[in-house]
Design a protein around this nucleic acid. Structure first.
Lengths: 248, 248
DNA sequence: GCAAAAGTGTTTCATATACACCCATGA
DNA sequence: TCATGGGTGTATATGAAACACTTTTGC
């Protein structure tokens, strides 16, 4: 992780032997349960050593001919069925001794983890329970102790999620095609915390930007005035691409 | 690199064989030549196949027992002597076929590159010319075609540099202990482009933040009124840590 | 005195923040 | 008709952008 220390290790062993690696991909998969206002992360129960019977991030080892991104998508498709998702690379963790398999298992093979970060829509995500593996959404607030350095990876992913939400339109990858401004607001509040902005200001700021189009369709959810359904207009958003847009 | 496509490749070969990796670290090392207002990147001439006699980012393969960060620091210390630097992980490039060695050289060994991004002070950086290897600072504006996918890595690093400068105090890792506000301004201008801000506004914004302390010492550089030397006060900066600070 | 570089101040305009208030619906 | 959630508007403060102006030096 980023650091500002400036140790420059002195080492002049001439031609030391190279490490052999297996490369794993681990996904931090988030979703937002807007009904209960909870941010969730997907965990699986490990079925083998090491860390058998510990919760962990869903992961896999990279196969021959498979790119890192392919492996990340493969994890997704093995664990959940979704139509829309956002996925991007997070960070690569690769210190020696991060995986206990390095000690015994093999002839000095190192395990390196490239982590990816994903956001999916909770309501449409269907978990694939294969009967053997435990798999579950956990509120980020109270995840247990995880296998390997997965708690660290999760923390890092959570930070990234918050930034992404503030600076880019990921939310719309994960909302249904049509949504109310309150849906959007709920999503932001559960991820960023209660006091990130007043609803009415959030509202006017977003509408002024001009890439949310009112469909005219109204929905009524219980009591109260019916809300308009809006749609994200990708074309109208185009000029904002790569600009330091702030939704806060 | 981050993407928003949602292809979920279908693949259900049961237990395909895993890829074996060698892991390389490549550094995008920037410095700013404030005298000539140029942003520079450090390149080395490759001495072996593949891409012999092509310029490339300085890199190395990770050794046994060595962490990724260690390897990144080792590259630094092998190429330049500096007292201060900023270093952080950039991105991991790992598609198959990105390294031509994968084709012939070996039994299906893949090469993966974890890139790091560094910023050093140009004036104090002393390049280590070992007589054999070509090594040089290149203006980012006109780097040639590089080996592997290094142009892509460089582009990515450049983007990260600009963000870092806007949102965090990296500049002070790379400026001398005492500096004039103009030194700081020059640094920002060469990296972010001429029209990122008016000098006087830049000035008042930064001073108001309160983590630059005037040492009272004056320096005269040619004609004109002598400038005050300022110092970065890390303690006074502490409250801003992790806040979305903007220097723009 | 004049040019050059450093540093200060002012005016204008846009936006964030904190509200108060009106509107449409179900019970 | 009242509670509930949706939606609009306004007053104030804060900050960005542009630019005019003063100060201190070398020549």
């Amino acid at each position: 992780m980023p650091g500002r220390n400036s140790k420059l290790p002195e080492r002049s062993l001439n031609q030391q032997s190279l490490a052999d690696f297996k490369v794993g991909v681990d996904n931090v998969i988030f979703s937002v349960d807007t009904a209960q206002n909870r941010l969730l992360v997907l965990l699986v129960m490990r079925q083998q050593q090491p860390f058998i019977n510990s919760w962990s991030l869903p992961g896999t080892l990279v196969r021959q001919g498979e790119s890192l991104e392919d492996a990340a998508y493969r994890i997704m498709s093995e664990k959940i069925r979704v139509n829309n998702l956002y996925l991007e690379q997070l960070y690569t963790f690769g210190g020696p001794k991060r995986d206990p398999r390095e000690d015994c298992d093999s002839y000095g093979v190192r395990y390196l983890s490239v982590s990816y970060f994903a956001l999916v829509r909770f309501e449409e995500a269907e978990l694939i329970a294969d009967g053997v593996t435990g798999i579950a959404w956990y509120p980020v607030k109270d995840v247990p102790l995880l296998a390997f350095d997965h708690n660290e990876i999760l923390t890092y992913g959570h930070r990234r999620l918050k930034n992404k939400l503030e600076y880019s339109p990921v939310a719309f990858d994960v909302l249904p095609d049509m949504f109310t401004l309150n849906d959007l607001y709920q999503l932001y509040t559960t991820v960023l915390g209660e006091n990130f902005s007043d609803y009415s200001n959030f509202r006017s700021r977003l509408l002024k930007l001009g890439f949310l189009s009112d469909t005219g369709v109204k929905v009524s959810r219980g009591a109260g005035r019916p809300a308009s359904l809006y749609r994200f207009d990708a074309d109208a958003f185009a000029p904002f691409k790569n600009k330091p847009l702030v939704f806060i």
